[in-house]
Each structure stands twice: as C-alpha cells, then as structure tokens.
Design a protein around this nucleic acid. Structure first.
Length: 365
DNA sequence: AAGTCGGGGGG
DNA sequence: CCCCCAGACTT
C-alpha cells in the first residue's frame, strides 16, 4: 500500500553507499558468480569479520567451480572447519559437481536453476543474481530484515511467516530499477554498519527522516525478538587416545547430524560407557584421566563435554574397532590416527571443541 | 510452523 | 549470561 516513495529510499541509500559503504571486501574484487556464491554461503549466519580469512583460504585452494568440483569432500570440509553449519560446505561441493554435470560447468543465470542448487534459497539466489548477474532481484537477510522492520515499524517477529512475507514484499518494492547491484550491497552495509542490532547510529543514517522506528524514538524495539525457549543440556564424554607415536584416534562422523562429516573423538553417553568400550577391546584403562569439563553451546542446546585422556604409549592394545555413532546407514566408519600437528594444521576437518582439546594437549607437552 | 544444523561477536 | 549473525533444509 505504502508505495510510490521508493525512488527516494533507494536514492538516499545509494548516495550514502557511494561515500560510506564498504567497497573493498574480498568478494567485491574480480566479481563473478562463483566468487559471490561462495561468499554468500559463507556469510550465512556468519559475520563478515569471521568469514574473511576463511574466504581467502578457500578461494586460494578452489579458485573456480571446476577446481571445487574436482576436490574431495575431505579437502572442502577441512577448509570449513571452525566455520560451523557444515552442511553449507557439503552443499557447496555438491552444487559445484552438479553445475559441472548439468550446466556445462557454467554457473546458471536464471532464478529457478540457481535456487534449485543445494544450499541456495531465495535470498542467496537474489544476492547472486543482483550482484553478479545484473538482474533485478531482492534479498532478505538479517540486515535487510532489521532495516525494513525499523523503517516501517513492523509489529511482529520476522521469523513468523506472515511477517516474513510482508518483508519480502517491501524488499522487492524498494529495490530500484537501476543500480540494483549496488543497492543490494548498500542495504546490507547500512544494516551492518549503522542500523545495527544494538546501539544503532541513527545520527548518520541516510533514511532517518522517514524511519518510523526513529519517529517512535524506540528503534531497538524492532525487529521483534524471537520468542525464547529453554535450551536443553546434554552430556558427552570424549575419549582422547594417544598411542606410542603420540597420535590421536579419531572417527569420521555421519553426514547427518551434528558436526556432519567431520573427524571427531570417540563419544560416549557416560563414563561407564567409555570404560565398557575400552574393556571390550582389551585396552588397558589404568591411565584413564578425567580432564576438566567445559561447555560448548550450539544454537539449540548446550553440550557439557567431559574429556577423558588415555595414554596408550606403553601398552599398545590397539585392536579392531568399530564406529559407535548411531548411524542408520550401517556404513563402516574406520578410525584414523593423526598427529596433533597435522590436526592443528587442519589437514582434516575437526570440530571446534576438539581443536580446543588438541591445543590443550599440545601445550602440556 | 517447528526443529536442525556452529561458532563467534558483542553487550 | 544473553541475543544475533549476508539462511537453508527437513519434518
């Protein structure tokens, strides 16, 4: 309804962007579909500052679609270790192979084909189309949701379907007919640098005079908070086995579930379960040591980790072992022994808490 | 619509 | 401790 004002919003935003926007981010150089795509995937639920070093390493190793498609999942995931949401890495890899097989190795240029690739939804597709492919498409990421929620004083949580639809409509209407590539970048920059979650810098905002939240003198009321729910607390015992070569025993986790596809320490539901496991394979457990527990928090639960260290340098009782993750696919998941150095160099992808433990082990040596 | 995927930044 | 971040996918 509140239409026919749009040129002003975009014009003011673009003027601000020209002199105050970010123009030197790594993915803003040598722009093409592939580079923008990788950046958009990494930036999902992840802040720019965090992404930059990962992006540099990734593009160094996989400079184009073909290189990425030819790489092993192992190599790709090792570049993703520590970034989180590992399905993003797996999907990126799968999509690259799919582009080679079904699009002659050329990144598709139409919305339906792009949004059909694994890991790409409406917003990411819109970003690639507008920034890299010169087509007028809107985005609706966390930044845009926040900016629009405030500008229009939207009463409702953006996670709610009805509210999100309204925001998409507004996002689309506000997108200009010219310079939509810069506009896409501009509205994200506004959200990331001025219209921030807390302590927004309204004094320097180019659209302050029309912002309804600013008029209400309660900018941080928007966007409405997500209704909070209790996070459950789970427990896990992680076994650190070190053999006579000072190597650590890891298993590859199932593709589905937490830390999918990463290599991690043997995990147990209790101390007793760990003991039982060691007993069952005739390993000496005299030197089983409990390290200090610590908490690792995911988006939907807390995990209290209880590390158990076992020095097997003297007694080499390494026998046949099987994975004990609950993996429906009955796949054989062999264990692997790695030196701490190779793990800290990131030769395979390991979860952040395991990195922490490996560092702890490395220091006490 | 709700749950499942991480890890880190900043208050 | 809390919430949120250039979301997508599954159920």
């Amino acid at each position: 309804m509140s239409n026919q004002q749009p040129p002003q919003f975009a014009t003011q935003l673009l003027d601000w962007f020209d002199s105050n926007g970010r123009h030197d981010l790594p993915w803003q150089q040598d722009i093409n579909s592939y580079r923008v795509w990788v950046s958009e995937i990494m930036l999902q639920q992840t802040q720019v500052k965090t992404v930059i070093p990962y992006y540099r390493r990734f593009m160094q190793s996989f400079p184009d679609i073909n290189t990425l498609a030819e790489a092993s999942q192992e190599q790709v995931l090792s570049h993703w270790a520590g970034l989180g949401y590992y399905a993003r890495g797996r999907n990126l890899h799968k999509a690259a192979q799919l582009i080679m097989a079904e699009h002659n190795g050329v990144f598709p240029k139409d919305f339906d084909s792009i949004v059909g690739l694994p890991g790409i939804g409406r917003s990411t597709a819109g970003a690639i189309l507008s920034i890299a492919l010169n087509q007028r498409f809107a985005i609706l990421d966390g930044n845009v949701k926040r900016v629009l929620s405030r500008f229009f004083a939207i009463e409702g949580w953006p996670g709610e379907k009805r509210i999100e639809s309204k925001l998409w409509l507004l996002a689309d209407e506000l997108t200009p007919k010219q310079r939509f590539d810069d506009y896409t970048q501009a509205i994200m920059d506004l959200g990331a640098t001025l219209c921030t979650r807390s302590k927004p810098n309204c004094e320097n905002c180019p659209v302050q005079s029309s912002c309804l939240a600013f008029k209400q003198e309660d900018v941080t009321k928007y966007p409405f908070k997500k209704p909070k729910k209790e996070k459950p607390i789970k427990q896990a015992w992680l076994l650190i086995r070190q053999n006579q070569n000072a190597q650590i025993c890891l298993y590859q986790r199932p593709q589905k579930g937490i830390w999918g596809g990463l290599w991690s320490l043997p995990e147990f539901e209790s101390y007793q379960a760990c003991e039982q496991y060691l007993q069952s394979e005739g390993s000496c457990q005299q030197s089983l040591i409990e390290w200090d527990s610590f908490r690792h928090t995911f988006s939907h639960y807390h995990l209290d980790i209880h590390p158990l260290y076992l020095d097997e340098s003297v007694v080499s009782g390494v026998k046949d072992q099987r994975a004990h993750y609950n993996d429906d696919s009955n796949e054989e998941k062999p264990e692997g022994w790695y030196s701490i150095q190779s793990l800290l160099k990131g030769e395979v992808g390991i979860p952040a808490p395991v990195v922490k433990l490996m560092n702890r082990l490395d220091e006490t040596k």
